[in-house]
């Protein structure tokens, strides 16, 4: 166990920020000081995701707690050559949030805005965002319009295929195809740009990472 470092100022940041030196390797070793630092870095990210998926703030607070426990247990799996810490944390958070909603056998109300919005809510060039997130935004713009529409609905609240079919009027099978192919295409684009290499180091076409 590493020696505990002085605890940082507990005052929450004014705005979520994800910059900084790697923290997950320290979390993986159980370093006590990493607990506060991990929360300070990713608390805003996890909270924002939880608020979007959860019906009320109380539920979101419970979800955030569960997500950080998941993160604490999963940190040793993180590989900086595959994705950024931000994306890894978001993946852990999404899994927990989707699973919570699935266990409840209900999902939050259908969003009204996402389907109508033709583009991401804001230009993605945020300084605090990691490069793979910025590239994901660019990759998204390369998808077919139908794939973008379906993925936007699926991603925003974890809407089911059936809900998306109802909202868009697309046949269920078409929704599934757009969702799967769109996401697979996203991964291919990211890999082609040097992001999201698989665990064997493969990129599309068999390139070595």
């Amino acid at each position: 166990m590493a020696k505990a470092a002085p605890e940082p100022d507990p005052t929450p940041n004014e705005k979520p920020s994800f910059d900084g030196p790697p923290i997950l390797p320290r979390v993986a070793t159980g370093e006590p000081a990493a607990i506060n630092e991990c929360y300070d870095r990713f608390g805003g990210l996890v909270w924002s995701l939880a608020r979007r998926f959860c019906a009320n703030p109380t539920d979101a607070e419970d979800a955030v707690q569960e997500i950080f426990i998941d993160l604490w247990k999963s940190a040793e799996r993180y590989d900086s050559s595959i994705a950024s810490e931000t994306t890894f944390v978001a993946m852990i958070a999404r899994r927990r949030l989707i699973d919570r909603n699935r266990r409840r056998q209900r999902r939050p109300p259908m969003p009204t805005l996402p389907e109508q919005s033709a583009a991401p809510e804001e230009s993605i060039g945020q300084a605090e965002m990691s490069e793979d997130v910025r590239l994901a935004a660019e990759a998204f713009e390369q998808l077919r319009p139908e794939q973008k529409q379906v993925l936007r609905l699926a991603i925003h609240h974890g809407c089911s295929h059936e809900q998306i079919a109802t909202t868009t009027g697309m046949p269920l099978g078409t929704v599934k195809t757009h969702a799967r192919r769109g996401l697979i295409r996203m991964r291919e684009i990211l890999r082609a740009q040097g992001k999201l290499v698989d665990e064997a180091g493969n990129r599309p076409g068999g390139d070595e990472a």
Binding site: E14, Y39, W47, V64, M186
Partner: peptide, 29 residues
């Protein structure tokens, strides 16, 4: 890879903007 792609896309489409309640930090840590 697909989970990570979905996560990156989530962050890209819906950038995190909310600040968690101050009391939550103490609870989680």
């Amino acid at each position: 890879g697909l989970d990570l792609a979905a996560a990156a896309l989530d962050l890209a489409l819906f950038p995190p903007r909310e600040v968690p309640p101050a009391a939550l930090r103490a609870r989680v840590t």
